[in-house]
Amino acid sequence: MYPHERSLVEKYADAPFAIVGVNSDDSLEALNAAMTDENLTWSSFFDGGGTGGPIAVQWGVTGWPTVYILDHKGVIRYKGRSDLDETIAELVAEAEKAKAGAQAAAAGAGQ
């Protein structure tokens, strides 16, 4: 899945989009090695050094990878493992529209 994630990062380099990982590798060394070896540019929470770590337990995650997509307001808009691209494209458009709207409103207020 890394190539897919890398392509998303490239595609949305200038857009309001970020990958945030929750990593369940055994050690910080393993996480750092994965980031270096696979050229991963996004940040991850280190979840306690294994599956069943505190974040995964609180979120009820029992299968990896598990993916949530959140919109720019932090609302969960998608949960699953496939068909991410459409959801992301839709939400990035929404986020950009919201940003443009906010800028227009700010410009309007400034006049």
Partner: peptide, 19 residues
């Protein structure tokens, strides 16, 4: 780090491991 640091952007929250 906090998840809310990313508010304002679309987030792909990815539970992963290098298996």
């Amino acid at each position: 780090m906090k998840l809310s640091d990313y508010r304002g952007t679309v987030i792909m929250l990815d539970f992963w491991g290098n298996w």
